[in-house]
Amino acid sequence: MKIEIADSKGMKILSISGDIDMHTSPDLRRELMGLVHKKMTPILVDFGSVTYIDSSGIATFVEGLKGMMAYGGKLKLVGIPPKVMEIFCFAKLDRVFEIHGSEEDVCNR
């Protein structure tokens, strides 16, 4: 898994590629919670190149979301591939997270 962090139009963008599992999710957690502790908002996570996610990855995003809710931050998930989206839906998290098709969709709102 690789994570790139960029600034764009006032947003922090985390672009993730590869597999998110119990081996890689600690790196993701460190990056995401680092931004949460600085009370960054909005944070946009680009899933476009994510090939796999397990429950440890899902738990990391739930933790990030809960951390951001404490200061009114917005966590936006974009470009989630169908097989990853299926896990969010199974966990009933598709209605909890703000999910967009692409970065452009977020910017156009």
Partner: peptide, 17 residues
């Protein structure tokens, strides 16, 4: 419970499905 939004506790559901 899948309606209880918190980190953890999802893995067993993914195994059993």
């Amino acid at each position: 419970s899948l309606s209880d939004v918190r980190p953890g506790g999802l893995g067993i559901h993914l195994i059993k499905r």
